[in-house]
Write a protein that binds this DNA or RNA. Sequence first.
DNA 1: ATGAAAGCGCTAACAC
DNA 2: GTGTTAGCGCTTTCAT
Lengths: 343, 343
Amino acid sequence: MTKTKLTLKDVALQLGVSTATISNAFNRPDQLSKARREHILAECDRIGYTGPNKAAQILRKGRSNIVALVLADSIPYTVSDPVASTFIKGVSSILQQQGKHLLLYAGDSESILDVVDFVDGFICYGAPRNYKLAEELARQSKPAITVDFDIEGLPSVNIDNYNAAYQIAKKAISPGDQVAILGLRLIESPSTCRIYDSPLIEVQTSISHRRLDGYMKAIDESEATISNDWVWHIPESERSFAKQAAKEVLNSNPRPNTVLCMSDIIALELLQSALSMGIKVPEELKITGFDGIEEADRTRPNLTTVCQSSALKGEMAAQALLSESLKSTVLPFDLKMGETVSA
Amino acid sequence: MTKTKLTLKDVALQLGVSTATISNAFNRPDQLSKARREHILAECDRIGYTGPNKAAQILRKGRSNIVALVLADSIPYTVSDPVASTFIKGVSSILQQQGKHLLLYAGDSESILDVVDFVDGFICYGAPRNYKLAEELARQSKPAITVDFDIEGLPSVNIDNYNAAYQIAKKAISPGDQVAILGLRLIESPSTCRIYDSPLIEVQTSISHRRLDGYMKAIDESEATISNDWVWHIPESERSFAKQAAKEVLNSNPRPNTVLCMSDIIALELLQSALSMGIKVPEELKITGFDGIEEADRTRPNLTTVCQSSALKGEMAAQALLSESLKSTVLPFDLKMGETVSA
DNA sequence: ATGAAAGCGCTAACAC
DNA sequence: GTGTTAGCGCTTTCAT
């Protein structure tokens, strides 16, 4: 006996009713009497029919209950990033609660076209490394929402990066300070480097540039100084990249006494490097981070940083997508005054 | 003008060729002349047809290029666990390379039936919290592979947990030691507690019980002692749960001088608690972990632990699934002698 | 309340 | 090489 899978038609035949009735028994309880429905369901259970084939339903209904989460980077990179995985956490909690499935889509993939036909919508977390994806996203017609960046015509979830950076910098900087900035993805380079006068990328949409502007305003207002070779580009919020930048900053002569970092990972790496070189934090070196990851509060000294709730971002994005509300949201942030900046 | 999506049929009509030819142009280059194919593709591009609808392809071909990763726990929990996210990393690197999509499926979901019809296969990472999923997995007919546990009839990827536990314990324990064990998911309880004589779960398949057996053998052989109320159950490898167990262990009177932990997260939490209580490690307290996460090597003292490559596990599992080889694999592990055990 | 039938968009066997 | 056609498994009008 070959075990070929039962179809709705088979079952209808066996039970001597029409396919529509079986279909209704599973999908539209109101379309048939309770007794009939229960009888049919019981029979299906008995003969081993587990319900309508989902692949066929996707085609027929045009709905799959699959939501694609388009990431900025590759999946391997993203899941090991604490900020991103917290975001995923938020998204998935809402999706699960609504019976939706989560498809992870890497931001360095070829084209969104290979999933667009069978997903119900997109959440796009950060500017995808392959920027073509963003354009495709703008052009296609399924519901979509962006987070931490914008696509013309789509709703988004964001924080006010300019202000957050400005405020944390104001807290950290005193008149006369010598400031350096460890920036995230400011230019196209795949390696850590100073930016000098390199062409900047996506200046208008990138959150990094908004943060940079906020920092600069604060430096300017505080009568501190920053030289044009004291802004670093770090391609990914990843420890090895950050470590190199940390080394370069700390070996500068003269050395900055305040370093503004665009992620906590970067800041923590800098902190660790500084401590192991015997540099006193915050007496000789003040450090600020960005994100508010848990680990940043476990270090001694703990980090002064901007706390944003990535989980909440994820929840908001998922909720907005599922309700198809087209409103953009700006989420609040908190300043966390830690020990890496003197009180 | 309403913008209704183009279908293969529309295009065939417009270009004056048959649907089969268009289909072949996209799927089977060898079935038509190069010139014709290129002409068709160019025309499609011009009129805005981006290729055959994937939902229809899934139904027709019975293949979606989607692989479901069935997790032991909820998605939120899993992505924040460093071991699991490293595993995901491994899986996704292979999938991406092979043009497959990744669907995350929570281990506490209702039933695999709502995806089985449209995914190409399953990777099951750890015994799903809702154990019914494992049974469904055994019964369905798509390719599937398990990791860190077994389902009758399915290939698996594992390490030798018994031996790993035995060996690390042997390294840690000296004659006369008083040993305690911080175990992971040993009983059904959702909260941290001592197990005394509680009924154990899935004793035969659970990796935790294999580890427990390994520890016990080593304790026995080393002429050390463990009392029956010195084995803790921790429901998840999560800091808050671990913290509580750590507190209970360290406040025991008398206090063990050796604690074997079933995950690095647990061990790190214990280490931190011990240090903050002024207990000297390893002089007064020896600690071993399990997994070999990165953070375990960044602490002072760094952790003595069992290193298993979760990324490799993920790669192996994905590769095995895609090649449909039915062989099970036992991966090697390394003992890492850190400073939490005296040399 | 239930059944008949069209067709979602495509692929693959087969005929030409 | 190219076209015709059956049908993947289902849902949903529409008639009854």
